[in-house]
Every structure is written in C-alpha cells, then in structure tokens.
Amino acid sequence: MIGVIDYGAGNLGNVARALNYLNCRTRIIGEPDVLSGIAGLVLPGVGSFASGVEGLKQRELFRPVKNYIFSGRPFLGICLGMQLLFQESRENTGLRGLGAFPGRCEKFSPGESGKVPHMGWNNLRVENKNSLLQQEDKLYLYFVHSYYLPVNPKIVLASTVYGGQRFMSAVNRERVWGLQPHPEKSGSRGLKILRNFVEVVNGDSNSSNRS
C-alpha cells in the first residue's frame, strides 16, 4: 500500500490513478492517523511552496511526514513535492521545507532563452544510475515549474537544462527520491519510473531485495 499525500493543493488524483494503473493499491493521506501501515509515501504537487508547507501543517501532516522521511522508508516527492523536500525556496523566503535535502529553490529568470514556467517535455541526463532511474538515451519527461534546484553533486540523479540553466530533475539520498518532472504525465517512460518506485516499496514489504 502506497500513500499519496493530500495537502489540499491541486490535482493529486492523477498520481493515485497512475499507481492504480500499475496495479498498486493506494491510500489518500489527508490526516496523520491514516499513515499507519503505509509502506511507501508519495508527495505530489502543484502550487506554491508556501501552500505546500501550510497545507501540510494545517492537516497536522508536516511533522509526521518529516518523521516518515527520516525513518528510512521509501519516499517520493514529485514537482512541488520534490521542492518541499529541501530546506527553503525563493518563492516564500523565511519558510522552512521538510529539510530532507540541503539547498534552496531558485527562480528561473524569463528572457531570450525561455519563458517561465518551464512547461513541456524536456530530456534528462542521468548522472547517477539508480533503482528508480536507469541510464537511458532520449529520456523525455513532462515538466511544469517556475523554480528549480541548482545541481548538488551529492544528491543529483539526473539533470536537465532550461533557459541556459542546468538544474536537478531527479535527486536521491538513501530511500528518499525527488522528481521535478511529472512521471504520472510522462507516458510510458514516466510510468516506468513509478513502477520502479513501487518495486522498491514492494521489495521492502517482502523484506527482500535490499541491496
């Protein structure tokens, strides 16, 4: 059973629908009580950094989610959900994120080289092969975001370039993953990444395949 966190922002249904399509059972997590028995957790997202942090706090999910992340169980943040895993964002300075990863989200500057938001299909350069992301040529996924994470070699899994800026499109440390693009909206390539996450979670549940 994978939990999909609902903190009141945007359309969280599509991530659950994609997991269900992969024959994975899901539970919508809108309050801390329903977290028990969850083998893996997904934090989807659209909206602002502040709406994410405040949405989690209003539902008394901020601390439990943070505890979950630091407990070493599989966790996947998508788009804003990835940005919330970091310490802070230029979008709402002074507000602390979940802090699983060090760093601050920066804003793309619109100009000759690109519009903001960065919206559409862009390719990922896999920097570090991982259970979620294999080395692939022509890996194009769908992005929609205005803020980005500068590359940090310690946690980067994949990077992408937009408007002359290379940023982290996938990150990982231990059992925590973040994806800036939307795997639930990226066709078969995106579904494959979600399936890999499901397999990480199932591997845990069967207490095997831990490598």
Partner: peptide
C-alpha cells in the same frame, strides 16, 4: 517511445556504460 506501457522492459544496460 510509446510502444506500450505493458511491454517488458529491456535488459539492464551494463554498469560501465558511460553517459
């Protein structure tokens, strides 16, 4: 790239394959 979600995945590429 979209020849079907149900398709079996390709075999693993080698560890040494460089980006």
């Amino acid at each position: 790239e979209e020849s079907g979600e149900e398709k079996e995945e390709k075999e693993e590429e080698t560890l040494e394959e460089k980006n």
